[in-house]
Design a protein around this nucleic acid. Structure first.
Lengths: 232, 232
DNA sequence: AATCAAATCTGATAAATATCAACATATATA
DNA sequence: TATATATGTTGATATTTATCAGATTTGATT
């Protein structure tokens, strides 16, 4: 599903304007408006495919997407979750002609795709834009690396607590939220087995740390959850 | 230990010229030559400190350095090894005023330090330079992330095999080499306990996969080691 | 409504890893 | 040289995690 018009249609008024495109002049913004496409992806739909040719820069406007890869053994691994206003696929876009990861919608998504050559041209001709882009890339990859490093030395309970806090604090900014991914996907995201994800979630519920109602999760004991996240 | 002269003294003739600084013109190269400092760090010496103010861009010319961080629990973690011609500290330099990691020499090192403002200025004024830098950053962080992801889903034997292969193939390009880091550091690098590192190395020796003589390691059975690296 | 497939869940057990203790060996320091 | 201190090593044991098996629930499709 894809179409060429975005609400407002002007990149100058887009929320990305203030972050990544703040250093473009009016002419450059017009170029951007003319070249970009505005797209939809339903939950489960693939936005970009690992190994596929990079066509452009993908900016997520609405919804959530997961970044995944199939590792050499054929096991699927989720690298991270992209949230609105994220510049998705940042990590590999300058080092390869092909996507290193899959980008898959886990909620209905709206995203923009900006032509690759146009951005490259902007980098060459607008140094301040290049600088902003460098900062943003650095931020995103730094954050991702930090998250992976944090996760690596936690054990299972700590990892599950971490991911619950992540969705509550970073994504939904609420102690009650709809878990957008399955138990299997949680397992793939924090490197554990489905059975153990289930087990530990049940454990948290039994200990009155969280409530689970269908896909809804409510954090009841924030203190205890944070403690487990750090020490568990 | 630090001094201002580098062998040849001209950045135009430096090995980094061909990678990162290939797009600078002569005037810009002269600026670079004038502003950079050339430094030594003995084994064990700290080149940059986590939390410390970023003064410049660090380029490793000779030797090996480890990138480490102290995680919130106070446990030391090694993120990666920097090899000659690496642009060290890439990940955080554009997203923070402070180093996110320690950079510590694990062999005697020679490195250049290029003034932060100078590089920032070059980015603004030379789009092609900015593009090259983006590519390099993307490459390095992509590689690092890939390595961490690979490591995460291996178990201990596979991780130890991985790190031996890494030093043999990527760093020393020889099946015999002096292990530059201690057992403890290996443990910190691949997220395991010292005892298990020792145990598995002994196991590999007992199974005639490697020979260990002091700090020297020789890979005897490359086939078997690679198998363990992938399937172990 | 009936049926199938996938996801969720629980318990029992096996395998992997961490911890603890003890000692040997090297390396630095007084 | 003697002494302390970190590193390396091995075995026994406890803890954590994965695996296997089976049951229940959920959701989609006919």
């Amino acid at each position: 599903m894809s179409q060429n018009v975005c609400p407002g249609n002007m990149c100058a008024e887009c929320s990305f304007r203030s972050s990544i495109f703040s250093k473009l002049n009016n002419a450059q913004l017009d170029e951007l408006t003319a070249s970009k496409t505005f797209n939809f992806a339903k939950k489960g739909e693939i936005i970009a495919k690992q190994g596929g040719k990079i066509k452009g820069f993908i900016f997520l406007r609405v919804g959530l997407a997961k970044l995944t890869r199939v590792n050499p053994d054929g096991r699927e691994q989720i690298i991270g979750i992209a949230t609105p206003n994220d510049f998705v696929g940042l990590l590999s876009i300058f080092s390869s002609k092909n996507y290193q990861y899959n980008i898959i919608a886990i909620e209905d998504c709206e995203y923009c795709c900006v032509d690759y050559d146009l951005v490259m041209n902007l980098i060459s001709t607008n140094g301040d834009f290049a600088k902003t882009l460098l900062e943003k890339i650095s931020q995103v990859s730094d954050l991702m690396m930090g998250t992976r490093l944090d996760l690596e030395l936690r054990q299972l309970r700590g990892r599950v607590a971490f991911i619950i806090c992540y969705f509550a604090n970073e994504v939904y900014k609420s102690t009650t939220f709809n878990l957008p991914i399955s138990r299997r996907e949680i397992a793939e995201l924090i490197d554990m087995r489905v059975e153990n994800v289930v087990r530990i979630l049940s454990e948290f519920r039994r200990d009155n740390i969280i409530k689970i109602e269908g896909t809804t999760i409510e954090i009841v004991d924030q203190e205890k959850l944070r403690w487990i996240k750090i020490h568990g």
